[in-house]
C-alpha cells in the first residue's frame, strides 16, 4: 500500500459522494449517464467476487469493495426511482453493448488464467477502462455540465490516474507488475484527457464547463 494508492481510492470514494450530493442538492440526476453507472456496477460485481473468500485478507479492500458496490447500486436506484423524471434516454445513448462485448473479447483473449474468476476479473478491468464513455459522450451531446458534475468526473478520473504512479512505485520498489490493470488504467486515464484539459482551463478558473 502506498500514498498514490490511498489517494486514488479516496478520490474514487469522494467521486461517489459528490455524485450523491449532486443529486441530493439539485434534486435531479440531469447530466448523469445511467448507462455509465450501470457499467460501473457491472465492473464492481465482476471484479469483487473474491470478497467472499478473501474478506479477511484486507479489511480495507473488503470494506471499499462493499462501499463501491452498495453506493453504485444505490445511485442507480435513485436515478431510476426518485430522480427518474430527470432521466433523458434521448441523450444517454452510447452503444454500451460494444463496450461490454469488447471487454468480453479482451477478457477471453487476455486473462491471467482461464478460470471463471480471472476471466471475469479481466473483463471488469477492460470494461472499467471504457465505462466512462457514455458519460463523456453525454457531456459532448449537452455541450456543458453543472460544476458539481465536473468535480465528480475529475475525482473519478483522478482515481485511476493516481493508480498509475502506484503501479510505477510497485514495479520499481516491489517488483510487482500487473500488465492488464496497467494497460487498461492508462487507456482509462487517456479517455479523460480532453475533459481534464477543459476542467483545468475552465472550471478551476471559476468559469462554467462548456465544450468549445
Amino acid at each position: 500500500m502506498n500514498l498514490f494508492r490511498i489517494l486514488g481510492d479516496l478520490s474514487h470514494l469522494v467521486s461517489i459522494f459528490i455524485l450523491l450530493q449532486k443529486m441530493r442538492s439539485t434534486r435531479s440526476c440531469a447530466g448523469i449517464s445511467l448507462r455509465t453507472q450501470i457499467l460501473y456496477l457491472m465492473v464492481y460485481c465482476t471484479r469483487y467476487l473474491d470478497i467472499f473468500w478473501t474478506f479477511n485478507a484486507s479489511l480495507y479492500n473488503s470494506s471499499m469493495k462493499l462501499v463501491f458496490i452498495l453506493s453504485t447500486a444505490y445511485t442507480i436506484y435513485l436515478m431510476r426511482t426518485v430522480y427518474k423524471t430527470a432521466l433523458d434516454p434521448q441523450i444517454d445513448t452510447f452503444a454500451t453493448y460494444y463496450l461490454v462485448g469488447g471487454a468480453g473479447l479482451l477478457a477471453v483473449l487476455f486473462p491471467y488464467k482461464y478460470t471463471v474468476y480471472e476471466v471475469l476479473w479481466s473483463f471488469s478491468i477492460w470494461l472499467e477502462s471504457v465505462a466512462i464513455l457514455p458519460q463523456l459522450f453525454m457531456l459532448q451531446r449537452t455541450g456543458e455540465a453543472e460544476t458539481i458534475t465536473t468535480h465528480y468526473l475529475f475525482a473519478l478520473g483522478a482515481y485511476r490516474a493516481l493508480y498509475i504512479p502506484n503501479w510505477l512505485y510497485r514495479w520499481f520498489l516491489e517488483g510487482h507488475f500487473d500488465p492488464i490493470a496497467t494497460v487498461a488504467g492508462i487507456i482509462q486515464t487517456l479517455l479523460y484527457s480532453d475533459f481534464f484539459y477543459i476542467y483545468y482551463t475552465k472550471v478551476l478558473k471559476g468559469k462554467k464547463f462548456e465544450l468549445p
Binding site: 481510492d9 471499499m64 491471467y112 493508480y163 510487482h176 507488475f177 500488465p179 490493470a181
Partner: peptide
C-alpha cells in the same frame, strides 16, 4: 507470474 494472481488492489 504467480504473484500477479494475488489481487491486492481495487
Amino acid at each position: 507470474y504467480e504473484e500477479v494472481l494475488v489481487k491486492d488492489e481495487l
